[in-house]
Write a protein that binds this DNA or RNA. Structure first.
Length: 756
DNA sequence: ATACATACC
DNA sequence: TACTGGTATGTAT
């Protein structure tokens, strides 16, 4: 009602901005959009995917409506005041405008497709794309004429272009080519920042400074005869080729002997930025037979826009002058700016903002409608400002793995898949030496609705068992929440984040084995433990973990929790301490607890930790194989404490610990729960055993007081038994994975910029 | 801290 | 038949 007709039409008329062709990218000019959209629509209509996209679209429209209502409530006064603030900030930004750096954004043209075409001449004159029937990564320019583009499913692309050739991805190859290209980048900026396999930012300011004094010979490159391009690079082309993976060249024409100097055509490049970049692109093409486009500008935001301007195989430069920058921005559609996606574009369009000039005119209004970070960003964009320094790749913040598959409804299968994901993720984490405290489970059901559920542990984890312990609980809550209906999933993913910093990980490499084997002489007796709390754990409840009187605590039984709402809090807090009077703590999930998360604390006298008390070696793990021998400990000694999320984690000293720490008998360890000597030296195995015992105790209790009654609990119980008993989860029917992995840059990005 | 959405390649 | 996977960050609670 508050909307005028025009405003309404600007977004209501088009409910399909998410489905329709995205012709934002290069190579998509002047095609028959209506015809293409009609085909896309007809192919998509009625699918689950389409329905979900419609729903999301409605959400965006609602967001826009809310925004318009808010806009309608803005007074002239408010706007005037906002304008004053904006003007002030604009002034400051203008004063600090930095035009002195020469930033380059280089982008390989239709990278994956170009590599495949290079290696298979058959494809040269055909419309082709890289990917699968389910999803395309890239298309060549020929295919783009049909509206076929990246991120489009192959089966739709086929409707648009029945002759489309779809080539499966070949990441090893793209990585190898990327490495070649990056070698060239590093000669112009050793600190260049790779953004993906085919894209990077460079700061060539220093290079240009030096280049000014270079003789022509240093700026001369030779074109080699054939289009193999493998010989042309001035520096060591031959040796480079030998170092490369043979697959790269197995299809290439066998390298002809180098042409003599007289036969070579030389090209001398100038000393300007354009020339330097043209030289770089020339070398890339000579070395890989692939073309790149580039943008040159005083900052990254502009350089990125510029690299798109003369794509493919072109470059564009914005000279370092304010006037020219502003002129360039004036007609630039906001959508062209990196970070402005289709939703932002649509919201701005609803306000009548399409290009950056209009954006600049409306900053005051935007400051009243958007968050601080958002409108500041808009202001920067409208002024043509952007980052002027290519920062070192910052530390990774999360790591994840996810998989799409045919509809999966069986809980056992889901748990099993979850474990597989955890295993993969654990491997990746360990490869990078990372441990994180937050585990996130991602689910997408067959209606394409996505859910994420996260859980932050007390300590950082990196093993399959630890991650799975958390992930499977998250999964269980979701399964239970729809029970007795099954979860019908099409995707599952697991992520670990909240990494502990590098310094946190380093310091303590103290060997827990050495400690154990020494026996109890100087180690944690209870009195020592109790009296030497250095850093009392301030948990949310503020309770110290290591109170001697904790042994006296009332011990609730598992049945106390059964009918309470599920509480997702870390359970099994294990309070530990080393002899140097340091207090340490850890926790983990209790895999045996189906209904609730009882929290249990025990004190053990030793553990390997880092400075923050995070476990260096996981003390408890959850995929345990042991005899199912019931704990000899009574409830009083094996406390299970409050289920409430606010409940104090309490500390209980296990008498069995005395046995353990006084067992100076070589390396054999005694389980503090079941009192059985363990034959292993391997702490991980020992931990598993202890963990198992604790869980077994709780589980048995639970099952005694609650004989299995219904479907609802049954699968989970089974699954828990599976984890605990000598037989793991039933062998999984391996889900059929639908799509190929499209991005594996995570193994590649990092480090690449730091060489040289 | 969690959930969900947006964005990028 | 069939609409990705990995990471970061913004927005809202």
């Amino acid at each position: 009602s508050v909307l005028n007709h025009k405003q309404c039409e600007s977004y209501c008329s088009d409910l399909l901005s998410r489905i329709a062709l995205n012709d934002n990218k290069a190579g998509m000019e002047g095609l028959d959009r209506d015809k293409i959209n009609k085909i896309i629509l007809e192919t998509s209509k009625g699918s689950k995917f389409y329905e979900n996209e419609l729903k999301k679209e409605q959400q965006v429209n609602q967001r826009i409506e809310k925004m318009m209502e808010q806009k309608a409530r803005i007074t002239k006064e408010q706007l005037k005041q906002a304008q004053a603030e904006v003007d002030k900030l604009t002034c400051e930004l203008e004063r600090s405008r930095e035009l002195g750096r020469v930033i380059v954004h280089v982008d390989m043209d239709a990278f994956y497709a170009a590599v495949e075409m290079r290696d298979c001449p058959e494809l040269k004159d055909k419309p082709m794309a890289v990917g699968s029937m389910s999803m395309l990564s890239t298309s060549n320019y020929h295919a783009r004429r049909f509206g076929v583009r990246a991120a489009m499913p192959g089966f739709i692309a086929k409707k648009l272009c029945p002759n489309l050739v779809i080539v499966p991805t070949n990441f090893d190859k793209y990585r190898a080519v990327s490495a070649q290209v990056r070698e060239i980048f590093s000669e112009y900026d050793p600190h260049f920042m790779p953004m993906s396999l085919d894209e990077a930012y460079l700061d060539i300011t220093e290079h240009l400074e030096e280049r000014k004094h270079w003789p022509e010979t240093m700026r001369t490159y030779y074109i080699c005869d054939a289009k193999t391009g493998n010989d042309a690079d001035r520096s060591a082309a031959e040796s480079e080729r030998d170092e490369l993976s043979p697959v790269l060249f197995e299809d290439s024409p066998s390298s002809s002997p180098s042409l003599s100097g007289a036969d070579r055509k030389a090209e001398v490049f100038g000393t300007s930025a354009e020339e330097a970049v043209r030289e770089m692109r020339f070398r890339i093409e000579q070395k890989t037979s692939l073309t790149a486009s580039a943008g040159i500008a005083p900052n990254m935001m502009l350089a990125k826009v510029c690299s798109d301007k003369n794509k493919p195989n072109g470059e564009y430069r914005i000279p370092p002058e304010r006037q020219v920058v502003m002129e360039f921005m004036k007609d630039l559609p906001v959508r062209k700016v990196s970070g402005v996606g289709k939703v932002t574009e649509k919201m701005l369009a609803a306000l009548g903002i399409v290009n950056c000039d209009q954006l600049g005119q409306q900053i005051a209004l935007l400051s009243l409608l958007f968050s601080g970070t958002s409108w500041h960003n808009f202001l920067h964009i409208s002024l043509g400002l952007g980052s002027t320094c290519i920062e070192r790749d910052s530390e990774r913040k999360s790591m994840s793995t996810e998989r799409t598959f045919v509809e999966m409804s069986d809980a056992e299968e889901q748990y099993s898949l979850c474990r597989d994901l955890c295993q993969d993720l654990a491997q990746d984490l360990q490869r990078e030496g990372l441990k994180g405290k937050t585990v996130t489970l991602k689910l997408k059901n067959v209606k394409f609705e996505v859910k994420t559920r996260a859980f932050t542990l007390q300590y950082a984890v990196c093993t399959e068992e630890e991650i799975f312990a958390a992930a499977k609980d998250l999964l269980k809550v979701e399964i239970d929440s729809v029970s007795p209906q099954p979860l019908k999933l099409r995707l599952m993913g697991v992520r670990v984040s909240g990494f502990i910093s590098a310094e946190d990980k380093k310091p303590l490499q103290r060997s827990i084995m050495g400690f154990l084997q020494k026996g109890g002489s100087d180690s944690g007796s209870f009195t020592q433990c109790a009296g030497s709390v250095l850093k009392a754990e301030e948990d949310s409840d503020g309770a110290s973990f290591l109170k001697p009187q904790a042994t006296e605590m009332k011990v609730p039984s598992v049945s106390d929790y059964v009918n309470k709402p599920a509480v997702l809090k870390p359970s099994f807090k294990i309070s530990t301490q080393v002899s140097e009077s340091r207090t340490l703590k850890s926790s983990s999930h209790d895999p045996s607890c189906n209904e609730e998360k009882p929290s249990t604390s025990i004190s053990v006298p030793l553990v390997e930790t880092d400075e923050d008390g995070d476990f260096k070696t996981p003390f408890f793990s959850h995929r345990t194989k042991t005899n199912g021998k019931r704990s000899v400990l009574s409830k009083k000694k094996m406390p299970v404490c409050e289920s409430s999320s606010k409940a104090s984690p309490t500390t209980h000293n296990l008498e069995a610990i005395t046995e353990m720490s006084s067992d100076s008998n070589g390396s054999s360890l005694t389980c503090p729960v079941c009192s059985q000597p363990q034959s292993t030296d391997d702490l991980a195995l020992f931990n598993r055993h202890v963990d198992m015992c604790l869980n077994q105790d709780v589980l048995l209790e639970f099952r005694e007081s609650h004989p299995p009654v219904g479907h609802s609990d049954e699968p989970a119980l089974k699954s828990v038994r599976g984890q605990q008993g000598s037989s793991p989860l039933p062998p999984s029917k391996k889900p059929k994975v639908l799509s190929t992995k499209h991005t594996i840059d995570k193994f590649f990005k990092g480090n690449a910029g730091q060489k040289v």
